[in-house]
Design a protein around this nucleic acid. Structure first.
Lengths: 189, 189, 189, 189
DNA sequence: AATGAATGAGATTTCATTCAT
DNA sequence: TATGAATGAAATCTCATTCAT
């Protein structure tokens, strides 16, 4: 986070920007769009955030914090397989429904914002590391490459942003269950 | 395809644009960039293609054709599990190494180009439909939702564009094998 | 009217644009020309007006309002022949000397601006309809086609933009008088 | 006329350009449009005419020649009033129906083509001078300003390009008759 | 805290024209 | 005669950003 001052308008600004970034993408959203959504003029945004890039960075931070909290709360089981499934379902919810903050993380890729590319990657990684623990805790047969397994689940979950629909089709829980079942049935010791 | 004329420079143009779109993204690449890469002035591009959007459309078309060919050639086995694995490996190669044309398909999303959004989606779908056949041919236990399975594999493969490296780490074949092994061991009848 | 914000610079912009459109034509005037005339950069104009076309639309609106006011004030006589003559003279002044706003209406034709073609035609018609009343009020012999008469006068007046000169030659009043005299002497009952 | 070589394609070129200039205007017509209409490529036009401006100049020349011929043929009566009426009707036909060459003269104004502005004005004047003779021959009462009378008729006729329709409404002959009747009834000695 | 006005850099696109072949 | 390819200048417009008030 680079600079921020008040708090009341600040949140409204972030929320509006997140909503727009998540639905239209970063480039397709102009400062004018954001300003209009929150009822101020473009120039006024700069009192709160020094640049458009910083807006995104702040959203990423808030998003990672949020998804981490949600994620931690979800994986409260003792059983590592239950935990994996709960985490996967949480990921699917995060990329689709739920708060715009989390959706932004999966919609806007770090290299759309060269200036903060590394910071954004670091933030993303902070979340993805949670999955590392989940996978490491699994009792798996020796042929499994845990690194690849983690990437497979992350990729599958990430992709859900393109097709998951909260109503109609399966629930996030059902999808998480299905994804993990392949792994469990195949590779559990 | 909207309009195209010669062939020599045309291909050079497409190749250069594809390379840039694949590495920097569509929005971050200007017509100036493309022109410079191919050694002409920005305005000259318009002799060959009527707009930047059409350039992308042509690349998508070439990319889908290419990946389809590669894909078809790869899945030549009799065994459906072999076929799935070969297809998955081909997907991973397509999103990472190989020609820029195919990489563009997975890097540039249809809603970055509203004018051709539907055409691009249709082209993408044309490729993804190939996977439907692969999955449908598998002898699977009844608990498997083939639709979700297809999306899982596509998502996992797609995601490889972010982390796959041709040298260092595992090969595309190894990764495809690993991904499919979960499914086969878990759900083969 | 599509969009407008302040008022001080706004008017200066309209005035400058009107002057240029009236003297050089719409196509021959660039946004750069207008910007230079008013002392800002081309891009800055877009803070005040969303496009060049909208600039013209606003000028047309102001012009029609202005000419209507002038026109109404001119035709204050009781005698219908006096009124016709006053109206004709007012038209001649409008197409030649006087404010640039009104000159634009007769210099720039609606189909130079396809996007607002219909709006411009409607605005023009709003003024030309005033003439209809003038002609309808005349006591004319039955052989007169009032519709054609109106068009004849409008055409003659319109054409004055090409040759009328405020100094040297006859005044607008004299010309209006001469034009109308033909009609009155020939067709008055 | 600046330069011209062959003759077969030349005429097709002029005809196509005239049609486009007359219907869309000079600025709104591109060399590409013209080339397409005649089945060649833009660059090929330059074998026949050195520039777009020269194309217009040639059309103007052809148009003036044509209208002059038509006009002379029309005013074959002995009676000066008959001659005026025939000339006026010919003008109305020229600005509306009939050949595109003549329509261009009344649609495209000289200052749309600064380079040949004077030449175009001269050509126009060459035609308008014909009207001078017509008017000068009329037996008119002393209050008539022949110069203004000529401009009035030219203006009224010119304006017909905006509203005259060959089918529906009155014929060019009827309109010419009506216009001239005012003058004759009012000012004939 | 916010506004109104403007900047300045750059984007895509258009188009008359040129010229080797 | 004509083509294919390209030029180069200019046009309209967008947008993140600045800054005095």
């Amino acid at each position: 986070m680079k600079s921020q001052r008040s708090n009341s308008r600040n949140e409204a600004l972030l929320r509006a920007a997140a909503e727009l970034f998540a639905s239209q993408g970063f480039n397709a959203t102009s400062m004018r769009d954001i300003a209009k959504a929150v009822g101020m003029l473009p120039g006024s945004i700069y009192y709160h955030f020094p640049s458009k890039d910083d807006l995104l960075l702040a959203i990423y931070e808030a998003g990672v914090e949020q998804i981490t909290t949600t994620f931690e709360a979800a994986i409260d089981s003792e059983d590592p397989w239950q935990r994996l499934q709960a985490g996967t379902s949480a990921l699917i919810r995060a990329v689709s429904e739920e708060s715009a903050y989390t959706r932004v993380i999966f919609k806007v890729t770090p290299d759309e914002v060269p200036r903060y590319r590394l910071e954004l990657i670091t933030l993303r990684d902070a979340f993805e590391a949670k999955f590392k623990v989940l996978v490491d805790d699994l009792p798996l047969q020796p042929w499994v490459d845990k690194h690849l397994l983690r990437l497979m689940i992350l990729g599958a979950g990430n992709h859900a942003q393109l097709w998951f629909s909260p109503r109609g089709g399966r629930s996030a829980d059902e999808i998480g269950e299905q994804f993990c079942r392949f792994v469990k049935e195949a590779a559990s010791t």
